[in-house]
Write a protein that binds this DNA or RNA. Structure first.
Lengths: 97, 97
DNA sequence: GTCTGACTTAGACGTTTATCTAATTGTCAT
DNA sequence: ATGACAATTAGATAAACGTCTAAGTCAGAC
């Protein structure tokens, strides 16, 4: 939708996002996904980070559960893109402090 | 200073802030401190959160280490205020994703 | 079908974290 | 100094977390 209306986060969602961002490696992964305009394939992330596929899978799931990325699967491969609505909502809540 | 110039965060500082915000109770404490225009005394925080003084002390130190709050001590008591420069810097970095 | 390649799940291991109680430090008032 | 109060530190404990290896699933190519 990318609606103009600001997405509203529950406390639970907010906590999930905060936790997801709190792990440096996970944050780097998110940054990398964000740098790619289109969707980024998983293998490209693996190349950049010295981490096992299992660990990467774990981090991606955390990011997805938090709503920070959206995952699309085409055949064997997956691609990710940052969900900027959610990120904006997180920033919005933080900036109210 | 509350300079107009945006405060720059190192990766380490950024990680500290992210971690500090990731704990729901700690975030609530920060919100409470932020709501008070002036500085908030410690006892006022204790009243609002069902947590031991030791735990509160621990959380406040985390927030202070992250730079999110500034602590002033007058006699027995301490007061805290949100450091909005740091918060702004954190938001700034996040919004670049 | 069988193989290969991309991801996931399960289980284990060590580290970090939030929390507590108890003891300590430090400051003010008497 | 003695007592009362505010906050910190120390030490313990249980839960959560990041990471790995090994095994599993599942889609496409042959």
């Amino acid at each position: 939708m990318t609606s103009a209306r600001e997405t509203k986060l529950t406390d639970k969602q907010f906590a999930l996002i905060a936790r997801a961002l709190a792990e440096p490696r996970r944050f780097q992964i998110l940054e990398q996904i964000g740098k790619c305009e289109a969707s980024l394939p998983c293998a490209a992330v693996l190349e950049k980070h010295e981490v096992s596929a299992a660990t990467l899978s774990h981090h991606l799931k955390e990011l997805e559960t938090a709503g920070l990325i959206e995952v699309t699967r085409t055949g064997k491969c997956m691609s990710m893109a940052v969900n900027r609505d959610i990120l904006r909502a997180y920033l919005g809540r933080l900036s109210k402090i």
